[in-house]
Write a protein that binds this DNA or RNA. Structure first.
Lengths: 343, 343
DNA sequence: TGATTTCGCTAAAACGATTTAGCTAATAAT
DNA sequence: ATTATTAGCTAAATCGTTTTAGCGAAATCA
C-alpha cells in the first residue's frame, strides 16, 4: 500500500505543538509570530529529519496559488517554440515554478478551451502566443487579474505585456539585403493570417520593395491545410512565376515547405534563387546552399518573458503593467542569399 | 477585483438543496444515490446556466487525483521528443488529462529533482525517458504504486512498462543496407552512454559488420559537452579515418553535428560518403544529398504510451503490469545511403 | 395496525494546509 | 498590589470538494 506521507498534523502531534506553530515556522513567520527560537529550531530540525514536504494541493486550495504557469505556444514541435519553451521552463524551475505547456495549433477553439481549463485549475500565470480571435479571452484573463504575457505576437488593441521582435524592420532589412545582392524579383511566401507578427513581416517586405520601386509578389498559404497541400500551393506559385529570383519565407516551417517545393521543380534549383527564412533553424547551415535566416533572439525572448511574468507574480502591484518589449532580430547571411556569379 | 467563482455551496444554497445532492448529481451518481430525476435535472440545468465548474484543486485534495500526467523527455527541443510530446498531449487532453512536460537533459540530478517535485504535486502518472542512473527513483515510484511508463529506453533490471523500438534490428538493417550498397568501411558515431537504446543500436551495428566480416569503427561522444566540442570531435575522428566510406549516426542531433563536420572538411563531401541517421528529421529530405534515416514510428509510440498510461489510471488493477512494447522502426532510404557511380 | 423497507435527501467529517483571533502566563508599569 | 503589556503559543475557521452514515416520510408487507 501507498504509505501516506506525513501531514502537518502528524508533525505537530509528534512534537506536541499545534499545527499553527509548525505552519508559522515553516513559512518563516516564527519571528513575526513570536515563536521562540528554540522551538522554531526544534521544528525545523524534525521536519528536516522526517523529510516532511507540505502538500502542494492543500496549500493551493488554501492560498489560491498553484505555482504553475501555463505556456501556450502555437506548436511545441516547432524548433522556435520548443527552444523558447525549454528556456522558459528552466528559468521557471529555478524560481520554484512549474510550467505546463501546450500547443494551440492556432485554433481559436482549442485555445479557448485550454484557457478555460487552466482557469479551472487556478493556474498562476499565462504565457501565450495567441491565435487571432482570442482577444476577448485574453481580455477576460486580464480583467480577472491573472498575470499575462504574450510573445511572438500581440493584439494592438489590448493592454497587455508582450515580448516580440521587430518583425517589420527585420524583414525590411532581409529584403534589402537581397536587393543589395542584385535580386530584383523577390517573392514573399506567408500565411493568410491576421496575426500582427505576420502582417508586420509582410509590411516590412512590401516597404523594402516599394522603397526600391520593385513590384511585390506575395503568396499566402493556409495554416490549417495539411503540409502536403501547402507544398503543392508553393510549387504551383513558383511554376507560375518563373521570373522570380529570390524568396523570403515568413516562418521556418514555410521555408521547409518551400525548399521541398523548389527541390521538386525540375527547372529550378535552390542555388538559382536567393532565399531568406524568417526564423532560423539548426539545420539551415547544412542545406545546399546554406539558408540565410532572420534569427529571433531566443534566449532574450525567453528571459524577458519569464522576467515579466515573475515580476507580476511576486508583486501584484506590477500586475499587467503593460510592458512592451521589442527585440531586434538578427539577419544571418548564408550562401543562399548571396548572388552567385553568372557562369 | 477578481469576483469569486461560485462554489458548490453557492449552487446548493440557491437551489435550496444540500451540497451533497449537487455533488451526487454532478458526479453522475444521481441514480445510484436515489436523487429524483426531477431534482437531478433541475440541478444540472442550473449548473449549466450559471456555468459552474468544480474547483479542480479542491477536488484533487479530496480525491487524491490530479488528472495531471508528467512527461519527462530528454530534451523537448529535439524533434523526436517534441513530436511525441505533442501527440501524447493531444491524446491526453481528449481523455481529460493534462500533461506537464519537462526536459531531463539526461541529468540524473535534474531528473531526480523533477520526480521529487512531481511527487510533491501528487501527479497521477509518470511518462519518462530516463537517463541512466535513476533506476532507484523509478523503482521508488513503482513501489509507491504510481503509474509509470518509460519510453525510448528502459532498465532491463526493472519491472516496468515501456515502449521502445527495436533498436538492435533497426540498426542492423540500416548497416546491412549500406553494405549491400557496396560500402565497407562503415563508422558508427554515438554517445558514451549506458542507456539501453544506445547500446542496442551500437550492438546492431557491430553484429551487422561482424556477419560480413567487416571491421567496426566507433566514435563515442559526450552528451554533456557543448555541441561545438562534439562537432570538433567528429571532425578529427573523420580526419583520422579517411578510409571510411559510410557513417551511421546514433541520433538525429548527432547526425546534424556530423553533417556539419563533413561540410567543414575540405577533402570530404557529403556526396562521397554513405550516411544513415538513427531518428528521422523533417528536413533530412532536403539535404544534399537527402539523408537516409531509421524513422521511429512516432504516432504509434505515442499511442502505445498513452494507452498504457490511461489503462493504469483508469483501472488500478492494471497498475504496473509490466507491459513491454517493442515497435519496428522503418528504414527510409534516401540518396545519402545509395552508392554513387564512380566517375 | 404495526413493523419493515424503500425513497429522497442531508449533516457532518474528511482532505491538508493557512490564518485570524484569542488565551494563558510572565513581565513591566503604575 | 493591581493593571497593562508582551511573549509564546493554539483553537478553530477556512478553502471547495467528496463521501459516509443516517434521518424522516412514504410505501410495502404481514
Amino acid at each position: 500500500m501507498k504509505n501516506k506521507r506525513p501531514s502537518i498534523r502528524d508533525i505537530a502531534k509528534q512534537l506536541n505543538v499545534s499545527t499553527t506553530t509548525v505552519s508559522f515556522v515553516l513559512n518563516g513567520k516564527a519571528k513575526e509570530k513570536r515563536i521562540s527560537e528554540q522551538l522554531a529550531e526544534q521544528v525545523l530540525k524534525f521536519v528536516e529529519e522526517v523529510g516532511y514536504k507540505p502538500n502542494q494541493i492543500a496549500q493551493s486550495l488554501r492560498t489560491g496559488k498553484s505555482r504553475i504557469i501555463s505556456l501556450m505556444v502555437e506548436d511545441i514541435s516547432n524548433a522556435f517554440f520548443s527552444k523558447v519553451a525549454r528556456l522558459i521552463e528552466e528559468a521557471a524551475h529555478q524560481r520554484g515554478y512549474k510550467i505546463i505547456y501546450c500547443s494551440t495549433e492556432n485554433s481559436v477553439d482549442k485555445t479557448r478551451e485550454l484557457i478555460r481549463m487552466f482557469r479551472d485549475w487556478q493556474i498562476d500565470g499565462y504565457i501565450i502566443t495567441p491565435p487571432a480571435g482570442v482577444e476577448e479571452d485574453i481580455q477576460g484573463l486580464i480583467n480577472d487579474k491573472h498575470p499575462v504575457v504574450l510573445f511572438d505576437r500581440f493584439f494592438p488593441r489590448l493592454k497587455t505585456n508582450y515580448v516580440i521582435v521587430d518583425n517589420f524592420n527585420s524583414t525590411y532589412k532581409a529584403v534589402n539585403h537581397l536587393i543589395s545582392q542584385g535580386y530584383s524579383r523577390i517573392a514573399f511566401v506567408t500565411l493568410e493570417s491576421e496575426q500582427v507578427q505576420m502582417n508586420d513581416r509582410l509590411n516590412g517586405y512590401k516597404k523594402a520593395l516599394e522603397d526600391c520601386l520593385l513590384p511585390p509578389l506575395v503568396k499566402s498559404l493556409n495554416f490549417d491545410k495539411p503540409a502536403e497541400e501547402n507544398k503543392k500551393e508553393i510549387t504551383s506559385f513558383l511554376v507560375n512565376n518563373r521570373q522570380l529570383d529570390a524568396i523570403v519565407f515568413a516562418t521556418n516551417y514555410i521555408s521547409v515547405w518551400g525548399l521541398e517545393a523548389i527541390r521538386d521543380i525540375t527547372f529550378m534549383s535552390p542555388a538559382d534563387v536567393g532565399i531568406v527564412s524568417f526564423d532560423d533553424h539548426d539545420v539551415f547551415p547544412l542545406f545546399a546552399p546554406p539558408v540565410s535566416a532572420v534569427a529571433q533572439p531566443v534566449e532574450e525572448i525567453s528571459k524577458e518573458v519569464i522576467n515579466i511574468m515573475l515580476k507580476q507574480l511576486e508583486d501584484p502591484e506590477q500586475m499587467n503593467t503593460n510592458k512592451h518589449v521589442v527585440l531586434p532580430a538578427k539577419l544571418i547571411i548564408r550562401e543562399s542569399s548571396l548572388k552567385k556569379k553568372l557562369a
